[in-house]
Amino acid sequence: MKKKISSLVIAASLTAPVLAEGFYAGADLGRANVKTPSIQGEVVNDEVNLKKNSTAMGVFAGYQFHPNIAVEVGYRDFGSVKGSEPVELNVFDIAKISGTNVNALPADLKSNATLNATLKANALHASILGIVPVSDNFSLYGRLGLARIAAKLNGGVDATFASDIAKLSKTVSVSGTMDKTTKIKPMIGLGGRFAVSKEFGVRAEYTHFGKIEDVKLSTLMVGADYRF
């Protein structure tokens, strides 16, 4: 009986590092997927699409107070996504962009223009993790939490005007902040962690964030953590 008890104690001590409770911190890097409806230009009446991927990065810290439960806080930068579309300008658009009276525009004036938009976002988040050990070194986990998401949309128009009559060749850029918002939204995630050693581990996770305005955000990240 004593031998059996001793064997159980030894086995528990060998698996303990994987399920070790305590503080940890780490960083991750991956891809952010950003989806928005077409962005309506403010200077010209046209649209630009912003359904793209960007490079995301983040840092996090947490405390695992139970083999199956941890709490975690972090910061995530979703990077920026850019979109552009060629647009046709009417005389009123040209007058607005160039700062010229409509009646003063040369009759042969030609223009080329591009509508641009850039979306940047980041989040501060706090969540609880439910952890399910699969083996001595590998575990799966689910995440449920809240994220304070800040998003900023910049847009503008780059236009070139030319006229033989007026001997004119000019490039004009008009840009500014189209929208800026900060909201608290839910976040959910699913990931896995592999314990390389007692202190060091690597993990991968897919996270979906609640929609902010009409913007949908999700990330696929790979990271590493260190347990103190």
Rank of each mutant, 00 (worst) to 15 (best):
L119M: 10
F138D: 09
S197A: 08
T177L: 11
G176M: 13
V9W: 14
T36D: 14
S111G: 09
A151M: 06
A195P: 02
V43W: 14
L89S: 00
E213H: 13
E72F: 09
R143P: 01
N90C: 05
S139G: 12
V222N: 10
K180L: 08
G62E: 00
E88T: 14
D46M: 06
E85C: 02
S139R: 11
A16H: 15
A166N: 06
A20M: 14
A107N: 08
E205N: 03
T114S: 07
I131N: 08
T55R: 09
K110Q: 11
S84G: 07
T114R: 02
V134P: 02
E199R: 12
F65M: 05
K120P: 04
I128D: 13
A123H: 02
P37R: 12
N45S: 08
I165E: 08
G191N: 05
V71S: 02
N103C: 05
I165D: 09
G83I: 06
K4S: 15
S173K: 11
D108W: 04
L129H: 01
G201E: 10
G155N: 07
E72V: 12
I131S: 05
L50M: 04
A107E: 10
A104R: 00
L124S: 13
S163I: 07
D46V: 00
I212T: 11
V44H: 03
T36K: 05
P86E: 03
G192Y: 02
T100D: 06
Y206C: 04
P133W: 01
D93V: 00
F23C: 06
N49G: 10
K180R: 15
N112A: 13
P133L: 06
T36W: 15
Y24V: 04
D93Q: 02
N49F: 14
N53P: 06
A95W: 05
V81P: 00
G79L: 08
S218H: 05
Y24P: 03
G22C: 10
